[in-house]
Amino acid sequence: MLRLNRRRFLGSSAAGLVASALPMRSFAAGSSPLRMQASWINDGEFMGYFVAIDKGYYKAEGLDLTYLPGGPDVIPESTIIAGHADLTLTTPDTTIKAIAEQGAPFKIIGTEYQKNPLGVISLASKPIRTPADLVGKTLAVPPVNVISVDAMLKLNHVDPSKVKIVPYAYDPTPLIKGEVDATLDFVTDVPYTIEQQGVKVVSFLLYDYGFTIYNDTVVVTEDVLKSKRKELVAWLRASRKGWNDNFADPKAWPPKFKDTWFKGSGRTVGNEVFLNEAQKPLIETPKGIFSMTEEGIDANLKALADVGIKGTRKMFDTTLLEEI
């Protein structure tokens, strides 16, 4: 019997009519569906997943993966609470804050970046090399990351009120024109864009100044962890393979995605190659990509505790990694 479910009631069928709007999907008969929400638009940050999809690694694991691109205003955690995706990539500070303060049912089951690529980027002509240099300066920060900057400033005994924080819309123009003194962005990415315009930049990682957290942590809800454990392990395994292939030659893959994954993003292949090479040391780890060591988890919890976010070891589940 056909039952009208409540989502359909509001006319999601309208969206279903639009085939071109459907997310990329790797079909496989008899495989289990899994939906993944990325944390940003399609760029080099997600190379490993694109490689794994194109090489059929998920399919080989029996997964029918739906990949949902993110964007500046997609809050990844929201999509898994709403049930729009099974698994997402997040910044651990917002995730842990949501678990601790709102009782959100999240578990962190792995991490893409061992070291958070977020950093403070400034022009070489007016360099900002340490947190202390930020005093009296204007720093453009995406609203999602204000919490991380506050954390880093406090950890380095800089009074956050001494730094003027303005919204950052991911546009480097204000920095190039000197309207702001620094921006908070991925140091693996933005320096390329700016240096293309003939301006030299300097940067430092928040990670290197005590804000020792991961990034693009792999997060699921407790329900999904229970009901789809097998699929999640399979996803980790296939994704790790994809990442390993990608880093075997970071220059090789981005050009292949020019007319598929990266089409219409408005970014250049050169930019993706730069990103892919720059992120290699931040993602690779001797224990295997996605690993979370006890020391690493400790460092995350300590950095967050210093800014009043009370995380616990229980919010991390490393047992899936052991099953890869």
Partner: peptide, 26 residues
């Protein structure tokens, strides 16, 4: 489209994606 929502197409999405490129012409 500025609100995102898991789709990579649309002029609003394109505009947001291009913000990071520092290309006022685009």
């Amino acid at each position: 489209e500025f609100g995102g929502g898991g789709d990579r197409w649309g002029l609003g999405v394109y505009l947001l994606g291009s913000l990071g490129q520092g290309m006022p012409t685009r």
